[in-house]
């Protein structure tokens, strides 16, 4: 059982590795973006899909990572390596702080608290415009996008960097959900009171989930900024909190490869739709409605239910 799970995930990583050599440039660039965003979605999935905590403000963690990285480069002249570390730390710190406060609430109140904190961060980015360049954002110069001697602006290197992040997060998640701590997170999602009465400190486990989820999201944000060279306030806005929810729901909440499948599908759905119409929001809206109505478990969730019960 363990072997086929490992085979599936290593196979996916291997497939993405091979794709690099065959994809035409347009799709090559798309898949690189999708892999980084899928890492973001996996971070979201840890909280929503595995622990049962619905956040409506995850863009704040993504943006914290992105701005932590970008601002430390822009204003302190940090090199890419140090800036990435700053970005990850920013995601971690914000997630820990938000977790400590927001986890005092549950359910609807939790969603609204996360939404409000995210909104406050977005507004703060606008308010400190002279420092953050507000709405416009800023470009990270090519000369700064060199990581350990590798030019991240080069498509091939960029693709492999995105794949490295994706593989790292995927394998870390695989390890975590099979680890006792991950089992407890799933138990909390299923029945928090029962979990507590089995002697687990559910509050600390939830805090761990929020912090880890925020750190992964922040890392994805920092890497996205580094690879694609742009830092902007739109990444802190509400849509970027909704997207991971959408991707995870589409792919299957509480499944490991679901976030990737969901991101891939949604990306190409919008891509195809935009060939016909520029109404991408309509596509997103209709997709959300159809998902909640007809496939609340998502693609991988449905596969697991029907045919592949062993899917993690």
């Amino acid at each position: 059982m363990t072997q086929r799970i490992l085979a599936l995930h290593l196979g996916l990583i291997g497939l993405l590795f091979v794709l690099q050599f065959v994809l035409p440039p347009y799709h090559h660039d798309n898949i690189a973006r999708i892999m980084v965003m899928a890492a973001y979605a996996m971070g979201y999935n840890l909280m929503f899909g595995y622990t049962g905590l619905l956040s409506l403000g995850h863009a704040m963690f993504f943006a914290a990572g992105m701005y932590g990285m970008g601002l430390s480069m822009q204003h302190a002249g940090f090199a890419a390596e140090a800036a990435l570390a700053v970005g990850i730390t920013a995601g971690f710190g914000l997630a820990l702080g938000v977790g400590l406060l927001a986890l005092r609430t549950t359910g609807v109140a939790f969603m609204i608290v996360t939404l409000m904190f995210a909104q406050a961060l977005f507004l703060a980015i606008l308010y400190f415009g002279p420092f953050t360049r507000g709405d416009e954002g800023f470009v990270i110069p090519l000369s700064a996008r060199i990581f350990a001697g590798l030019r991240l602006s080069d498509p091939t290197i960029r693709y492999f960097a995105a794949l490295a992040l994706f593989a790292l997060v995927l394998l870390a998640m695989l390890w975590l959900i099979r680890h006792p701590v991950g089992r407890v997170l799933i138990a909390i999602r299923e029945n928090e009171e029962r979990t507590r009465m089995l002697g687990y400190d559910t509050w600390r486990h939830k805090l761990f989930a929020v912090t880890a989820s925020g750190t992964i999201s922040g890392t994805a944000g920092a890497v996205y900024g580094l690879l694609f060279g742009y830092v902007g306030a739109s990444f802190a806005e509400v849509p970027y909190s909704i997207f991971p929810l959408l991707w995870v729901l589409l792919g299957g909440a509480g499944t490991l490869v679901g976030p990737f499948i969901g991101t891939l599908f949604m990306f190409y759905l919008i891509d195809l739709a935009s060939g016909v119409t520029d109404a991408y929001m309509l596509v997103v809206g209709v997709a959300l409605l159809l998902l909640t109505l007809f496939a609340p478990r998502g693609i991988m969730g449905m596969l697991r239910e029907r045919w592949l019960p062993w899917l993690p």
Partner: peptide, 10 residues
């Protein structure tokens, strides 16, 4: 909540 987010975009 998810469904009304969908309505919002539509």
């Amino acid at each position: 909540i998810v469904a009304t987010i969908g309505l919002l975009y539509i």
